[in-house]
């Protein structure tokens, strides 16, 4: 299968050749990534010519992680399974919208899963109120103007720079609190700090991130 992948080379994706695939083999469930796979390159292949082998790599890596991530944030396994499947279907369908210079494949896949989770929650809330119009989407799929795209690429540099200067401790506390949505008591024991300081630790990390993002380059 790898040989087949390697043979495919797209001129319009030439900056990102099949290096990635030579560097690594597909990861098995539960395996820690040994090498960095160029996921953006694989998404590009799916976008460019519906490359099923490239998509299989993406599926095998990300689908179980999306499910694991959702379960960790408190979702029932059945619901998480459904969203993980739909997320990968959307990765296939929206591959052309992925911008390789953006924050990265994992962040992009996260936003897809997040939007599907929002949709599912709203659908559930709507079910008791039949005959209501469907809600609008939040515009994340809207086509961007070139100016917006440029501004966003500029942002990626700033965002990456800011995040790299955030301390490990601070990004951990943000992750536990907002992304994994853990209760403060759990965060306290995970970090080995008193419950009373969790709140101020979170607030401090958030304003630090804001400050780093505000700094002129």
């Amino acid at each position: 299968m790898n040989a087949g992948l390697r043979a495919v080379s797209r001129p319009d994706w030439s900056g990102r050749s099949s290096r990635a695939l030579r560097r690594s083999r597909p990861q098995r469930l539960g395996e820690r990534p040994k090498t960095t796979v160029d996921w953006a390159d694989l998404i590009g292949r799916v976008a460019a010519h519906g490359d099923r082998d490239a998509f299989k790599f993406l599926f095998e890596h990300f689908a179980p992680r999306v499910k694991g991530f959702l379960v960790k944030t408190g979702m029932q396994p059945d619901a998480a399974e459904e969203i993980a499947q739909s997320t990968l279907v959307a990765v296939w369908r929206k591959a052309g919208q992925f911008d390789p210079s953006s924050a990265g494949a994992a962040a992009w896949i996260f936003t897809i899963a997040r939007n599907l989770r929002i949709d599912a929650a709203r659908r559930a809330a709507r079910q008791s109120r039949a005959d209501q119009p469907t809600e609008p989407d939040d515009g994340l799929d809207a086509v961007e103007s070139p100016e917006t795209t440029m501004a966003r690429r500029d942002d990626v540099t700033r965002v990456t720079a800011a995040l790299s200067r955030l301390s490990e401790e601070q990004s951990t506390v943000i992750r536990l609190s907002f992304i994994e949505e853990r209760p403060h008591a759990e965060i306290a024991s995970a970090l080995g700090i008193p419950l009373g300081t969790v709140k101020s630790r979170i607030r401090l990390a958030m304003s630090k991130l804001r400050d780093l993002l505000d700094e002129p380059r």
């Binding site: 960790k72 998480a80 962040a107 996260f110």
Partner: peptide, 25 residues
């Protein structure tokens, strides 16, 4: 919007490190 992107970035990293759960599909 930069702050939101930073959060999405951190969420992407958390997704990447999440313990995988095999799909039934």
């Amino acid at each position: 919007s930069r702050f939101i992107q930073a959060m999405e970035h951190l969420a992407g990293a958390a997704l990447e490190e999440a313990r995988p759960i095999a799909l039934s599909g």
